[in-house]
Amino acid sequence: MHHDDATTTGQIQLPTPTVWPIVLALGVALLVTALVTSVYIGALGLVLILMGSVGWFRQVLPHEAHEPVPVETEEIRVETARRLLKAAPISDERRKILPIESFRISSGIKGGLAGGFAMTVPAGIFSVVKYHSFWYAVNLMAAGGFVSWAGASNQFLGEFHLRGLLAATAIHGMISILVGLLYVAMLHMFPKYPILSAGFVVPLIFTGLMHTAIGVVSPILNQRIEWFWFVASQIFFGLVCGFVVNLHDKVRTPQFQALPFAVRAGFEMGPGTGAPTDDAAGKKNEEENQA
């Protein structure tokens, strides 16, 4: 609004102080107060509102009232007593925390869906072997969403229910996609043993989480769950999902842009590739107190 610079004009235009906003505010407050006091207060409020509005209008129309404020510049030094230190050289193979490549979000969704489909195989086998019906597992999953199914019999759960199928698909699909996305976010952080991390570690952690939380999330599932089959399905999911995610091309992250040209062009090794690196491209220096 006011882009005039003090250095050229020696003054700056600022809005003139004005009494009308407070008058208007008092008027409105009094008018409202009249409801619980007396009409005279309301009348006073009304008068103040009129005065305030007219006065305010005249402040801004036809021209916004400004007043010049004189300015005298004096240099303010923006400086610091601290100095920069190079990040301490711990070892040549310093751990690099910023990945220069990562997976696409879409590959997480695909991986999640693939894993989700794959997981129905062990779950289905369990269901058929133990309860002689594929629908048992489906309905059990769905029961978390239907409170009225809490006390349902095994027979009921073994029958086909459209509601159950829809709810189970929704719940299972959602969770699968979320976990797939999690894989996309995590996998490149543990690049060394993808099969171990994606296929076993994550499923086991997830199982641990479920084991503690399930009583709250879905009491009915808690009563009937078979942990052996649960773990098996999880691992199956993890392997398939991790595999599918890993199939896809990686995309470059902003860190890649910060690499020197030679690295980007593929002539040289850069950070994140295991080679010793130049600090400027890897971690930014932070400052330290003067020793």
Partner: peptide, 26 residues
């Protein structure tokens, strides 16, 4: 920035909130 976008509205808003508080305690 040099000030808020609407300096007079700013004053008005403060005062009307303030009067609200007085009203409560009245």
């Amino acid at each position: 920035a040099r000030d808020m976008a609407f300096p007079r509205l700013n004053a008005f808003s403060f005062w009307i909130s303030a009067f609200g508080g007085f009203l409560l305690y009245y």
